[in-house]
């Protein structure tokens, strides 16, 4: 029945998806599942993310914790695909998180105005995952380049989403956002 109801994103500003730098809200079109426990046997190792064959993005966001991002509605399928041997907890985070994509050649320059992490290729290469404060909100940041264009997935707690989207738009304004 819930399929008939529209999933509401917390972001009230419009996406900026034209121009050299884009900021798009993916919250309402993606699912997010948290898997905790080394005995889940999941990969990759802490600090890295890979795209699985089924299209799910598996990010090792904390030691022995993985964040799996897939299409909206698939959280259940993803959860049951995780082995339940040993002490493993699976929690649906689709509703408790917002997910944005910041993409463009200047994406790192925009992000470094609001985030103190070294985003250079040495320290945060493509596929790197880091938890950091972005505009004073703790987020998971995944570098997930698309067609060789710099791109970041920014994941934050749902309640901060509208504020964070505005803060990112503001930071990117000088590079063509907004």
């Amino acid at each position: 029945m819930a399929d008939q109801l529209a999933f509401q994103s917390p972001v009230r500003s419009a996406d900026v998806n034209e121009g050299p730098l884009t900021l798009v809200d993916l919250t309402a079109t993606s699912s997010q599942t948290l898997v905790r426990g080394a005995e889940s046997g999941l990969t990759p190792s802490f600090g890295h993310a890979t795209r699985r064959d089924d299209g799910v993005l598996a990010a090792a966001t904390r030691p022995d914790e993985w964040t799996l991002i897939g299409p909206l509605g698939d959280a259940g399928t993803i959860a049951s695909s995780v082995t339940s041997e040993g002490f493993v907890t699976v929690i649906d985070q689709t509703h408790s998180r917002a997910r944005f994509r910041l993409a463009g050649d200047t994406a790192a320059q925009a992000l470094e105005k609001v985030c103190s992490i070294d985003l250079g290729d040495h320290m945060t290469p493509n596929g790197a995952v880091v938890s950091a404060s972005v505009a004073k909100v703790t987020c998971d940041v995944l570098r997930d380049d698309v067609n060789s264009t710099r791109s970041y997935l920014v994941i934050c707690d749902r309640s901060f989403a509208d504020y964070l989207f505005s803060a990112l738009s503001d930071a990117g304004a000088e590079f063509g956002l907004r």
Partner: peptide
């Protein structure tokens, strides 16, 4: 600076 004061709202 930009004075980041995060605000949280419910759905």
């Amino acid at each position: 600076g930009r004075i980041f004061e995060p605000e949280r709202v419910s759905p």
